[in-house]
Computed example of a mutant assay.
Amino acid sequence: MKVNRVRQNVLPLVTAMIWGTAFVAQSVAAEYMGPFTFNTARAVIAFFFLLGLCGLRALWRRGRGEVPVSYGSRRDLIIGSLCCGGALSVASFFQQKGLETTTPGKAGFITALYIVLVPLAGLALGKKVPRALWLGVLLAVGGLYCLCVTEELTVTGGDLYVLVCAFCFTAQILAVDHFTNKVDGVALSCAQFLVMTAVSAAGALMEAPPPLELLPEYLGPVLYVGVFSSGVAYTLQILAQKDSNPAVVSLLMSMESLFAAIAGAVILGTRMTGREYLGCALMLAAVVLAQLPCPLGRKETRAGEAFGDGQKV
């Protein structure tokens, strides 16, 4: 039980820290290559990293005389990788496209809108949504207005791209929640990046390749996002969601917005206006308020029952 609590609470926070700092690396890489090219590179790196991890784990278990890892049925793994990888591919494209014209701090907070969207998805499943969540939605909308809408009542294209990515990440979180108990988590993560590689590579054919003479400038950010943000963090996400309430895990992962704002200010020296900071505060309040009915650290109902109704198994 204690191990489960650590996995369900610590792993999402580590994931959030990695994702938040990765916004800076993604912003730097966006200056040198298109979104499809960047996502192809990160997905390839993540796939081979996780493939090697699966191989090392199999050798380690064999050396200890343990039973080989069960990856679940091949059918579930294929369907799961297509669903998770497809959603991740689309979400990553819109996020990277948005980072071409918006700051890492703003992108982090707008992406974190999935914290409200995940519980709201329960409405489609006929589940009750607590009143506090509706107040959270209003706060999130107000926060998005302060963040994205300028004094001239216009919205930048980058903000809109990142807003779309929040909806796509919601779909990816729900897909992971559905398949994480059916297949091995590391195998699912590896397979979803194989799908992402294929999808992104098709789009990369339409983009100009990054200049090779500037390789030292963008190699570091690409490797960081490929190994840590993709290979490590998305695997931790899958492991954290196993037997967990997806709404609670998404709350903890949404702290990536704070890490993104801090990393952007420390590393890139970016600054937001007072109006944008107000938007961040409103969205953070929505994040917390949306999850008040869900007690942290407790084992909640699975995907169909875990969208804020507070019932335990």
Rank of each mutant, 00 (worst) to 15 (best):
Y71H: 03
A16R: 08
A22H: 00
M283R: 02
Q291N: 02
A285E: 06
D159T: 10
A87G: 13
Y32C: 06
V225S: 04
V227E: 05
L147W: 14
A263N: 03
V195N: 01
V183M: 04
A58C: 04
V227W: 05
E151P: 02
I262P: 05
F48C: 04
P295V: 06
I18V: 01
L139Y: 02
G158C: 12
G274R: 13
E100A: 03
T40P: 01
T21I: 00
G264H: 02
Y277F: 15
M17I: 00
R64A: 11
A286H: 08
N39H: 11
V164T: 11
L292E: 01
A107P: 06
P210Q: 12
T273N: 08
A121Y: 15
D177M: 10
L59M: 15
G310E: 02
V232I: 09
M272D: 14
T111W: 10
Q241P: 08
G297V: 09
Y224D: 03
S244F: 10
V67R: 09
T103I: 07
S254P: 02
G310V: 06
Q95C: 07
I18A: 03
M272W: 07
R302A: 12
G220D: 07
L282Y: 14
A29S: 15
G52F: 14
G158V: 12
S257I: 13
D184E: 04
I78M: 07
A112I: 10
C190W: 04
L289F: 07
P211T: 11
D159S: 15
Y161Q: 14
R131N: 05
I18P: 03
T197Y: 00
Y277P: 09
D243A: 14
K242R: 15
A46H: 10
S27C: 03
S244H: 07
C83S: 14
T235P: 12
V28D: 09
S244N: 10
T273I: 11
F109R: 01
L120W: 03
